[in-house]
């Protein structure tokens, strides 16, 4: 009686092919991805049938939350090779930031602000911000993780420090002598050499507001742009499918 010998099969599978597939997928995702931008408030944009895509480069986004707080972010050129002459996002932010500080100090001679190089660098790396100039310095001095926390209006921490009030905006018509801070920012972006062409054509400025935002809130922003003679701009929407044409 001989025992039947069961041949042991190796359970090793050749993973080379699998590895090939995953690397391909990975390459695809890396090349196509645009990262989610960190935004202090979550907004649900209304839908429209418009098929014009939001530009990925050279864009000023004005985020308006239902309470009327205004946040801003700037994006520069994607192509920053020396031949195209484009400015990277950080360079754009730097230029805007410097001209805003200068303009703010001109308008508010009694309450001047000044920033260290480190604070300026931090600003250039920040995606979105929304606070008065006199709070900005304190906010930029915080640690990275703290900054994201304190700008969120739903959390108490930031509100107590005054970081969640948005960029001050009012119905000021006197752009030369007494502009509000929103006007200062927008004008600085308008004068930024890299953004100028898209700001004039109206493609470079997008208002992003929640569907439930009352019109009075959006109107203040639009009114300010009108005061600055920027009558062309875009509203950010989500895609809606048209039911049966």
């Amino acid at each position: 009686m001989g025992k039947v010998k069961i041949k042991r099969k190796s359970t090793l599978i050749d993973m080379t092919a699998m590895s090939d597939v995953t690397v391909l997928l990975l390459t695809f995702f890396m090349l196509t991805s645009t990262f989610l931008q960190k935004e202090p408030v979550k907004v649900v944009t209304p839908s429209s049938v418009s098929e014009i895509k939001v530009p990925v480069q050279k864009l000023v986004t004005v985020l308006v939350d239902p309470q009327g707080r205004v946040f801003m972010s700037f994006a520069g050129d994607k192509d920053t090779t020396s031949t195209s002459g484009g400015m990277s996002t950080e360079e754009v932010r730097k230029q805007i930031f410097e001209s805003v500080v200068a303009e703010y100090n001109r308008v508010h001679p009694s309450a001047k602000v000044n920033f260290t190089d480190k604070e300026e660098q931090t600003f250039c790396k920040t995606a979105m911000f929304g606070m008065p100039m006199n709070q900005l310095k304190k906010w930029l001095d915080l640690k990275d993780s703290k900054r994201d926390e304190t700008i969120d209006p739903t959390k108490k921490q930031g509100a107590a420090m005054g970081f969640t009030q948005g960029i001050p905006i009012d119905k000021s018509k006197d752009v030369e002598m007494a502009p509000n801070e929103f006007q200062i920012w927008i004008r600085a972006a308008y004068n930024c050499s890299s953004l100028k062409d898209v700001m004039v054509s109206g493609e470079g400025i997008a208002i992003k507001a929640d569907a439930d935002t009352p019109y009075s809130v959006v109107q203040i922003v639009m009114d300010n742009l009108q005061t600055l003679k920027m009558n062309k701009f875009t509203l950010m929407t989500a895609l809606k499918k048209e039911k049966g044409q």
């Binding site: 990975l26 995702f29 890396m30 196509t32 991805s33 645009t34 990262f35 989610l36 944009t45 429209s48 418009s50 098929e51 014009i52 895509k53 939001v54 109206g202 493609e203 997008a206 992003k208 639009m222 742009l225 009108q226 005061t227 003679k229 009558n231 062309k232 701009f233 875009t234 509203l235 950010m236 929407t237 989500a238 895609l239």
Partner: peptide, 21 residues
């Protein structure tokens, strides 16, 4: 990468307001 990317991009609606002049 799948979790961090946005595949759907927002659309924009262009408007132009009358001039204030």
């Amino acid at each position: 990468f799948m979790l961090c990317t946005t595949m759907i991009k927002s659309q924009t609606l262009q408007i132009s307001l009358p001039s204030n002049d």
